[in-house]
Design a protein around this nucleic acid. Structure first.
Length: 281
DNA sequence: GGCATTTGACCAGT
DNA sequence: ACTGGTCAAATGCC
């Protein structure tokens, strides 16, 4: 890089925006892999090859997750440097408020709801026509109308938040300019935090401890219904909840085992435009 | 009855 | 004061 006076500036580390766009791209890759998996796996017969393919998909997702984690670590340290350069007062306030959060978390005073922070730093967003097929199991805990947005924002947290103290959350919001009539409805999905739960609860039961944390049947049911909640909202996709469960049942029977999250199979029941959207995305 | 979802209220950050 | 994130009681579904 050359400065205007002709002298070379020291090679700087990637900027915060570089990190952010890199994380975006990786997250997009994750989304694509997840969607590809949802298409490919149901088409495979339940044999060792199927298991191998599932494991490979999971390995790819694991790699990208680790990459995002690494980027986030760099991103946060860079952001701290930026803060110091930009505004010391703000930084001090930020740190002290962080301390408050930590203290509250430590004391967990039941009389106070835990402090919330508007999280923008550790989030990764992506756009997808199928916001729920990310191979994870989520539980909806809130929905809110957002200012100047046509559609409400749904709030999800990891199903295993209580059992395994997994802090991962995500928000799903239908984009304003997607009507869902002629072209696929697009959603903005923002992921906050990293999953700390045993991945086996979601997808990769191909790994060692696959029998210890398999979700109960009710959990499977919940993940399926959660995965479809927003799709039902606009009435253009699925018209019968039972159809999805029936499909999940069929797949379970056909495969004889459950190497992946059942949500991964859900697109089998998508309407043609949704499948088309998956293929084009 | 047990579970997940819905929804209004509450709270914290800006 | 406004906005967005979370909580928790109410509700609905299986």
């Amino acid at each position: 890089m050359k400065h205007h006076n002709g002298r070379y500036l020291p090679q700087s580390s990637p900027s915060v925006s570089d990190h952010r766009s890199a994380m975006k791209e990786i997250a997009r890759g994750q989304s694509l892999v997840t969607q590809l998996r949802a298409i490919v796996l149901p088409a495979l017969q339940a044999d060792q090859r199927c298991e191998l393919v599932a494991q490979m998909f999971q390995n790819i997702l694991d790699c990208s997750s680790k990459a995002i984690t690494e980027l986030q670590l760099h991103h946060q340290s860079d952001a701290r440097v930026d803060d110091a350069l930009v505004d010391d007062k703000k930084r001090v306030r930020k740190i002290s408020s962080d301390d408050c959060v930590k203290e509250e978390g430590a004391t967990s005073n039941p009389n106070h709801q835990h402090k919330r922070s508007r999280r923008s730093d550790d989030s990764v967003s992506l756009e997808t026509p199928v916001p729920h097929y990310d191979g994870r199991q989520w539980r909806k805990y809130g929905q809110k109308h957002i200012n100047k947005a046509k559609h409400p924002r749904s709030y999800y947290r990891c199903t295993y938040r209580q059992e395994q103290d997994c802090k991962a959350t995500k928000t799903v919001q239908q984009q304003d300019d997607s009507t869902g009539t002629d072209h696929p409805v697009m959603y903005t999905v923002v992921y906050h935090g990293q999953h700390t739960c045993n991945e086996n609860n979601g997808i990769d039961s191909g790994t060692d401890d696959s029998e210890t944390n398999t979700p109960s049947s009710s959990d499977s049911r919940s993940s399926i219904s959660t995965a479809c909640t927003d799709l039902y909202d606009h009435q253009t996709s699925l018209n019968d909840n039972k159809l999805l469960e029936k499909s999940a049942d069929m797949i379970t029977k056909n495969c004889m085992y459950e190497p992946f999250d059942m949500t991964a199979f859900a697109p089998l029941d998508l309407d043609s435009w949704e499948l088309d959207a998956l293929l084009r995305f």
